[in-house]
């Protein structure tokens, strides 16, 4: 083996070693949360950097799940997230399809407005959204949270669908119409099933945004603690039990684990969704 090649091999493994150390440090805080959730209160303070609990204390989970209502918050988060994902996928696919495929009066206006608001700062519309929801009786309800999460923005998802539908050969739709399928049937039976990869990307990105959203469920549940989602519940838990570290760690683990599992299973679509922002 010549020395140049050997030096390059060595260089590669040096890079691997450095990256490995960085990555361990990187995920250490997440491992610490899980570890702290299994220690007793004293163990969290005195344990220092050690991750292994002496004997696991699962009662932290019972405390978080029942006493701190994280069971309820989990249900709320699941309902809000699923509702938002379904609504976003449906409305964005429908809009993307007609924008890509149909010529109708007002199309330019619709596309123009969508694109123009792509860069409007999102978080600052919260005051009027609260006011409008209050007027419509949606302020203290999960439906209100879902509508607000699914209603604003998501322009990128519409454009993603439109771009994809543009590339589907027209012969497929024409064949469906020849077979006597109407507009609706053509879309739901032929076109939408073809957009599986886009639906997957839009679903995981929406899932992430909805599950992690904080400000909206926070201001929507000021007077209804029973409707809090996990992220809002965490802040409330610290407000009432700031010394219960192991309980808080258990609550944090309850909220983060489903998210990480979904991420690891569907990582490809997360990465594609994020990367899409650059490529377009």
């Amino acid at each position: 083996m010549n020395t140049a090649l050997r030096r390059r091999r060595l260089g590669i493994w040096a890079q691997v070693a450095v990256l490995a150390v960085i990555c361990v440090v990187w995920i250490y805080p997440l491992l610490w949360i899980v570890s702290a959730s299994l220690k007793d209160s004293l163990g969290v303070f005195s344990g220092g950097l050690g991750l292994l609990p002496g004997s696991p204390h699962f009662e932290n989970y019972a405390r978080a799940w029942q006493d701190a209502d994280f069971g309820l918050y989990t249900v709320n988060s699941v309902i809000v997230t699923l509702g938002t994902v379904v609504l976003v996928v449906l409305r964005c696919a429908l809009a993307g399809y007609v924008i890509a495929r149909r010529e109708f009066i007002g199309k330019r206006v619709v596309v123009g407005v969508l694109v123009a608001t792509l860069f409007a700062p999102g978080g600052l519309t919260i005051i009027p959204v609260v006011e409008l929801s209050d007027l419509l009786g949606l302020l203290n309800s999960r439906t209100g949270i879902i509508l607000a999460l699914a209603g604003g923005g998501h322009v990128a998802a519409v454009l993603l669908y439109a771009g994809y539908f543009n590339r589907i050969p027209r012969e497929l739709e024409e064949a469906a119409i020849m077979d006597g399928a109407g507009f609706l049937r053509t879309f739901f039976r032929v076109v939408l099933p073809l957009a599986g990869p886009v639906t997957a990307t839009v679903s995981v990105m929406t899932f992430l945004a909805a599950w992690n959203n904080f400000l909206l469920p926070l201001v929507f549940t000021f007077s209804r603690p029973d409707l809090r989602t996990l992220s809002v519940g965490m802040l409330a838990f610290r407000g009432t039990n700031s010394t219960d570290w192991s309980g808080l760690a258990a609550a944090g683990t309850i909220s983060l684990v489903p998210l990480l599992l979904v991420f690891l299973a569907l990582q490809r679509y997360f990465v594609e969704g994020v990367a899409g922002a650059v490529k377009s």
């Binding site: 990555c23 805080p29 949360i33 992690n212 965490m234 944090g252 991420f263 990582q267 990465v271």
Partner: peptide, 22 residues
């Protein structure tokens, strides 16, 4: 390595904020 470095991105910011306090 890419996965490990990306993991914090998917976590809930509000939860991380509370936990970082500890």
């Amino acid at each position: 390595f890419r996965t490990a470095l990306f993991v914090p991105v998917v976590t809930t910011t509000a939860i991380i904020g509370v936990v970082m306090g500890f």
